[in-house]
Design a protein around this nucleic acid. Structure first.
Lengths: 183, 183
DNA sequence: GTCGAATAGTAGGACATCCGACTATTGGAA
DNA sequence: TTCCAATAGTCGGATGTCCTACTATTCGAC
């Protein structure tokens, strides 16, 4: 399981930890967490984008397609997409621009609010989404060979981070650190 | 502890999980992990960059400064920086460009290899790094109010992801899921 | 009803990141 | 010694993300 940048024969996170301790700096566990989180994200995202490259998609665009596919009529106002995807309105504009350029999405005026614009999944976009989803499943969404039990534990730990930011977190209620939650 | 984008009163990860199950799609735990990982990273990075904005720094530039501060002579060849930071050579060029522009780093020819360029921390860069580090400690590197025990558990779970990518992982050796490892 | 605050979308700019291509230099093989 | 592959750094281009600013529209207060 090697990918996402050839790894040096050294634990970069442990290296950072040692350097920090040597300097007598504080919040070492938090520093290590932030570092690990960034690296793990880089790894997973790299794998995901690698798999999606075969479809000329990126994770951002894939997420937008998936979101639309779950909406009534396969369409949604762009502002609402930004809320769901937790990105800035200008990022939605950018994402929809490219999806529309490639024929996966269509823009249309909102019937009840002339300020709003509806983004609608096209038939082509729906088909692409189906194929891309299969590809992501095939690579287990970039989570490597980690078994489901560990994934559930990981989710529980990550839920702490999300909860600390005020995110509503349900379903992943902290358990006995054995990972037997998720309704 | 609210920040990093006002949270909707709904667990977006749990929402995704439900949609996935409703469609009968597979690898749900992996999908949830990838989604949680992305969100947690977004939260932590947002807090970190928010704190660093007071110093006109970004996390990328901060990491480069910190890396140089750990090197002999506060300097390092750019290619080696790319290896340590796990980023593309062009990203190092970009990062050093801005750090040099702001007077935090200096470029100089490598004494033994005329192809290479050494990046060296300036006195100003060293001082800025010290202040920025204090600011990051103050916000616990974006990890919110999560206690150290949970952070160690989180690190252990994230180590699985890093290890799955071939990263050398030591120090964070999996424990009894109680988080009492780290050498 | 009218007017100002709030909302929706976009343009322009700054950053970070990757990729491919290109120049300069190094180093090992023939 | 010569020559080609590998390495170091940069440039240009594509994406994604955020911020600020601006236009258009909606909506609530007065």
């Amino acid at each position: 399981m090697d990918d996402a940048a050839p790894s040096i024969d050294m634990d970069l996170v442990a290296e950072a930890r040692r350097n920090w301790i040597d300097r007598g700096l504080g919040e070492v566990d938090a520093m290590v967490s932030a570092t690990s989180l960034a690296r793990a994200h880089q790894i997973a995202l790299g794998r995901i984008n690698g798999a999606l490259a075969d479809f000329s998609l990126t994770f951002s665009r894939y997420e937008a397609l998936a979101l639309l596919s779950f909406a009534r009529g396969d369409s949604m106002a762009m502002a609402r997409m930004g809320e769901r995807l937790q990105v800035h309105p200008t990022s939605v504009t950018s994402t929809i621009d490219r999806l529309e350029r490639d024929g996966h999405v269509l823009r249309s005026p909102h019937p009840d609010d002339r300020r709003a614009t509806l983004a609608t999944l096209t038939e082509q976009g729906r088909n692409l989404l189906r194929e891309a989803t299969a590809a992501l499943e095939a690579i287990r969404w970039g989570m490597g060979d980690i078994d489901d039990r560990d994934l559930v534990e990981l989710n529980a730990e990550l839920a702490n981070v999300r909860a600390s930011a005020g995110d509503s977190v349900v379903g992943s209620i902290r358990t006995d650190a054995k990972g037997n939650s998720n309704e």
